[in-house]
């Protein structure tokens, strides 16, 4: 990473953060990581009717070196898992991951020997997108939510602060099994 990580906290850093976030979110290059059914819906999203080009994202890169978003579209098998991690490692920072569909998010209906029960066992996931497969509109919604996240991402000392806070919140969070009310 460059100079922006070394900026002192304060007015300059937050301004650079906003500028960098805006630039980054406006032109996200997804890597083609189509695996199964969801890949077809991902292609549909890029095609005429849904037209992902409206969000500056129609250029799916064949090489992970040129991509900063990995849309894991489909079920990840045990055999594919090392490949997936390798492709992720080849992507330059900053990078994001959308786990598209239930199979990628949690294994879905394929709770068996062959499928990794959630791609978050292998790579950190930013957005979980449910559906089997999710409609193109849902994928676009996930992408817009990711854009918001990218826009609001922190840099330098602020990023360290944010990571610390997130860690704290995760440690204090109730396990799902103890949640009450609507979250149950």
């Amino acid at each position: 990473m460059g100079l922006e990580e070394k900026l002192p906290s304060g007015f300059v850093l937050t301004t650079v953060e906003q500028a960098a976030g805006w630039v980054r979110k406006s032109s996200v290059f997804p890597a083609t990581f189509g695996l199964a059914c969801c890949a077809i819906e991902m292609m549909t999203t890029g095609a005429g009717r849904y037209d992902l080009a409206r969000f500056g994202m129609e250029v799916f890169r064949g090489s992970p070196r040129q991509a900063d978003l990995m849309i894991v579209a489909g079920r990840v098998s045990q055999k594919m898992a090392p490949v997936l991690r390798q492709v992720y490692d080849q992507m330059p920072n900053p990078k994001w991951v959308i786990s598209m569909g239930v199979c990628a998010s949690s294994g879905g209906m394929f709770n068996n020997y062959a499928i990794v029960q959630g791609v978050d066992h292998i790579v950190p996931v930013d957005i979980y997108l449910p559906g089997c497969p999710p409609r193109p509109e849902m994928l676009m919604d996930a992408i817009l939510k990711l854009h918001q996240k990218i826009q609001g991402s922190k840099l330098g000392v602020n990023a360290e602060e944010a990571a610390r806070e997130a860690e704290e919140a995760a440690l204090n969070a109730l396990p799902l099994i103890e949640m009450k009310g609507l979250m149950r």
Binding site: S106, G107, N111, N112, Y113, A114, Q117, L176, I177, E178, M179, R184
Partner: peptide
Amino acid sequence: PQRKDYPLGGIPVEYKGAQIPAP
């Protein structure tokens, strides 16, 4: 894996406060 003496290999799933065993 597809022999009858090979387990399906599913894991229990936690859903809304309950454990749902593998199929």
